[in-house]
């Protein structure tokens, strides 16, 4: 209980720091700390799968994305004194009002019944033992299928911002790490470990905490580390193999879903072969998630804008 109170206090303090008057770089650092603290809150709420996703995606990849954006933005539009804030009073009042209303609504919520019992009852027919994976890939497959398409759509959006001359170049800006530096050192040490952890998370996700999104994110982090350390060049956008990797997950998922029509409905998985089907979907989905997330963080190709 005391731990919960301290944790909530720290979450609030760090969230305040992330929106306060510090510079943009410090704000991003506080945001990453916020993500780590929130993932500890998820552990306290018995949601280990969410804790993994929050730590890997919410804190990790979002942090890398924002930090590299800070550096790119300062080069494009740096310098000059300017006002940090506008409309402080109305914004404060609006925020306080929304917080008050949300707290009031939360306190007034009827005791929720929850769907835990229904999921537990259906779990023997789901093919996997982890209820969260069962919900993601079997009971609510629609959500996950469309989510993988959203990822793809976001990447199309990012790539659509590419300048005409840069199309077909390597994704992101040219990266240079100091030879023998910290980044290059970690770039050589961490990838084997990251590959193992990533694949383990996907495999373990059938029975315990983990899954395609958490594992795929770790694999994306490995790819990003290699690219940022300059050890492996980022792929060229538009390379056929790359495009195949991007669509493999949604395509396999959709294929299995359509095959389910023969069984009884779109995205229905026959209980007898649900496990191999889910593992097949997860394998393809992991590849696509890893590649898509890494490319989303690298951003559009800007070969002329070296770091």
């Amino acid at each position: 209980m005391l731990l919960d109170v301290i944790l909530c206090g720290m979450i609030l303090a760090v969230a305040l720091a992330a929106v306060s008057g510090l510079g943009v770089f410090r704000a991003v650092v506080f945001f990453v700390v916020h993500g780590v603290l929130v993932s500890m809150a998820w552990l306290r709420l018995d949601a280990v799968d969410v804790a993994l996703a929050e730590a890997a995606i919410g804190a990790g990849l979002t942090g890398v994305l924002l930090l590299s954006a800070v550096a790119r933005l300062e080069r494009l539009a740096g310098g000059g004194a300017w006002r940090q804030r506008v409309n402080v009073l109305p914004a404060g009042l609006a925020a306080a009002g929304v917080t008050g209303a949300l707290m009031w609504a939360f306190l007034g919520l009827p005791q929720p019944a929850g769907l835990g019992a229904e999921v537990a009852a259906a779990l023997p027919r789901a093919g996997v033992e982890n209820p969260v994976t069962a919900v993601l890939l079997n009971f609510r497959g629609w959500d996950t299928l469309l989510e993988s398409v959203v990822l793809l759509a976001a990447l199309v959006g990012v790539w659509a911002l590419t300048a005409d001359d840069d199309w077909g170049a390597r994704a992101g800006v040219a990266q240079h790490a100091a030879p023998g530096g910290v980044l290059e050192g970690f770039g050589r040490v961490l990838p084997p470990l990251g590959l193992m952890v990533g694949v383990y998370l996907v495999w373990a996700g059938a029975a315990g905490p983990g899954g395609a999104f958490q594992g795929g994110t770790v694999l994306a982090a490995v790819a990003l580390l290699l690219a940022m350390a300059g050890l492996a060049p980022a792929p060229r956008v538009g390379a056929p193999a790359l495009r195949l990797a991007l669509v493999a997950g949604p395509a396999v998922f959709l294929g299995v879903g359509v095959a389910g029509l023969a069984w009884g409905g779109f995205l229905r998985l026959p209980p007898d072969i649900a496990k191999p089907l889910i593992l097949t979907i997860e394998a393809a989905l992991t590849l696509s998630i890893a590649v898509t997330l890494a490319l989303l963080v690298l951003g559009r190709p800007e070969p002329g804008d070296g770091a």
Binding site: D46, A53, L61, G116, V132, V135, D143, E147, L151, L296
Partner: peptide, 23 residues
């Protein structure tokens, strides 16, 4: 354990938030 349905929806939300942030 916690209700798995909100957990799955939150994981979906976290991933979509990253995609929107990247865009």
């Amino acid at each position: 354990g916690a209700d798995p349905v909100p957990q799955a929806l939150i994981i979906t939300g976290i991933v979509v938030a990253l995609a929107a942030t990247a865009l």
